[in-house]
Amino acid sequence: MSTNKVAVLATLAIKPEAAEHFVASMCEVRAKVLANEAGCERYDIAQGPTPGTYRIFELYESAEAFAQHNQMAYVAEAAIMLSMALAGAPTIELHDVIS
């Protein structure tokens, strides 16, 4: 049994010198996502288990809502910031939500 919901788990390694800017920028992105995207039910940023590692948890009501999220201008701007802040390739997992 599954729902139409899509969960996203991104794991990001951030350069130490970029960490403060990354956190501030992603908090701004979070606010924009939650204010502008009715299809996004959750967008949380967490410190990962090791220094410099962060996790972003996202929950969308549907694949369409997630696709719409990826078309937002502030997401494109965040991708540019991330390209400069990343210490390595990110891991992004998409999951179908069961319940």
Score class of each variant (00 low, 15 high):
Ala87Thr: 02
Ala73Glu: 13
Ile80Cys: 01
Pro51Ile: 07
Ala31Tyr: 03
Val97Arg: 05
Ala13Ile: 12
Glu64His: 12
Leu34Val: 02
Glu28Asp: 14
Ala7Met: 11
Met1Cys: 15
Phe66Val: 00
Arg30Asp: 00
Arg42Pro: 04
Val33Gln: 02
Ala19Trp: 05
Thr50Tyr: 10
Thr3Glu: 15
Glu20His: 14
Ala63Glu: 14
Phe66Leu: 14
Met72Ile: 00
Phe57Asn: 09
Glu37Val: 05
Gly52His: 02
Ser99Lys: 10
Lys32Val: 00
Ser25Ile: 04
Glu61Pro: 06
Ala38Arg: 09
Lys32Met: 11
Ala35Ser: 11
Thr91Trp: 04
Arg30Met: 09
Pro90Lys: 06
Glu28Pro: 05
Leu12Asp: 01
Thr3Tyr: 05
Phe22Pro: 01
Arg42Asp: 12
Ile56Asp: 06
Ile45Ser: 03
Ala7Lys: 11
Ala13Val: 12
Glu20Asp: 11
Tyr54Phe: 14
Gln71Asn: 10
Val8Ala: 00
His95Ser: 13
Ile98Asp: 08
Cys40Pro: 03
Ala65Thr: 06
His95Ile: 09
Leu82Val: 03
Tyr43Cys: 01
Gln68Arg: 13
Ala63Ile: 05
Val23Glu: 08
Cys40Glu: 04
Val33Ser: 00
Gly52Pro: 06
Ala79Gly: 10
Ile14Tyr: 07
Val97Pro: 01
Thr3Leu: 15
Ile98Ser: 11
Glu64Met: 12
Leu12Gly: 07
Ala78Glu: 08
Glu77Tyr: 00
Glu41Lys: 02
His21Lys: 14
Val8Arg: 05
Arg42Cys: 12
Ser2Met: 13
Ala73Thr: 11
Pro16Asp: 07
Met81Phe: 03
Cys27Met: 14
Phe66Asn: 14
Glu58Ala: 02
Val75Ser: 00
His95Asn: 15
Met26Asp: 04
Val97Cys: 06
Ala85Asp: 04
Val23Ile: 15
Glu17Val: 12
Ala76Gln: 15
Lys32Thr: 06
Ile92Asp: 07
Tyr43Glu: 04
Ile80Gln: 10
Leu12Arg: 03
Ile56Ser: 06
Ile56Trp: 05
Val33Gly: 06
Ala76Asp: 10
Gln68His: 13
Leu82Gln: 01
Val75Asn: 06
Ile98Glu: 12
Leu59Asp: 01
Arg55Cys: 15
Ala63Val: 07
Met84Pro: 03
Asn70Ile: 01
Ala24Lys: 13
